Simulated scan of single mutants.
Amino acid sequence: MTLPTTRTWARRGQTPAIRVRGRSQRRFSIAALACYKPGERSRLIYRPKRHVDHKRGGRRSFTWTDYRDLIAAHQQLGAPIVLIWDNLHVHKDARLRAFIDAHGWITCYFLPAYAPDLNPVEGLWSLLRRSSQANTAFTDPDHLMRTLRHGLRQIQYRSNLIEGCLADTGLTLTTSRQQAQ
């Protein structure tokens, strides 16, 4: 577990050194949907995942089926979904594209390469790192997962933070573009 440190100190002229008790080979992934609907409270739907067997050649990230299941959140929202995705290779998986194309309630746009400033979810990750994750030495993987869930719940209950992440991108709910293939 790498220590997410936001501040430290050292004597003037000396480089600060932070000691960490070793590195875990475990990996965690989080996928999230920032959901915006005019006239309604913004929502955050997320799925954390702990990859316990990647040392034995297992998967180290979300699969296309994990994203497919997350997209099924439209049932919770009761509305069509417009996805704004970065160029992660799993987002462009042919099976996921076939799933999206087969359902009329999903519209998908891809961001230009290297444009995290246009992705509202990147703002959520920044909020998470600066709040619950900052200056925390996690004692074990369960402590990390509890802290992640707690931090995401804190963001989830504050819709103004979720709306602020959209506003920070400069995008609006009325932005119209051609659907990317």
Rank of each mutant, 00 (worst) to 15 (best):
H103D: 07
R60A: 09
H51T: 04
L128F: 03
P116F: 09
S132W: 00
D101V: 02
F99K: 01
L127C: 12
P48W: 11
D142T: 14
Q76G: 04
Q133T: 09
L96K: 08
T107F: 01
V121Q: 10
T136I: 15
L96Y: 06
F138K: 07
D69Y: 04
Y67L: 13
W85K: 00
N87D: 04
I84Y: 15
N119Q: 06
L124K: 10
R47F: 09
D93E: 12
P80C: 09
N119L: 04
A113N: 10
S131Y: 00
T139W: 00
D140Q: 02
H143K: 07
F62S: 06
A72Y: 12
P141F: 14
R68Q: 14
H74P: 00
K55E: 14
D117E: 15
L88R: 04
A72T: 12
Y67I: 11
D140E: 08
A79F: 07
F138G: 10
G58E: 04
P80I: 09
S131P: 01
H103F: 05
Y67S: 01
L77H: 07
T65P: 00
N87S: 05
L118Y: 08
R68V: 00
L70F: 12
R95Y: 08
R68T: 07
H91L: 05
T63W: 05
T63R: 13
P48N: 08
P48V: 10
I106D: 00
A113Y: 13
A98E: 10
W105S: 01
F110W: 05
K92F: 05
A137R: 08
N119K: 03
D53S: 11
G58Y: 11
S126E: 13
Q133L: 15
R56L: 05
A72S: 13
D66M: 10
D140A: 09
T65I: 11
I71R: 06
R130C: 02
R97E: 03
T63G: 10
R95M: 05
H103E: 01
D53G: 10
R50L: 12
I106C: 08
Y114V: 00
H51Y: 06
R60C: 05
P112A: 03
P112Q: 05
Y109S: 01
Q76S: 05
A115R: 12
I71W: 13
H91R: 02
S131F: 00
L127F: 07
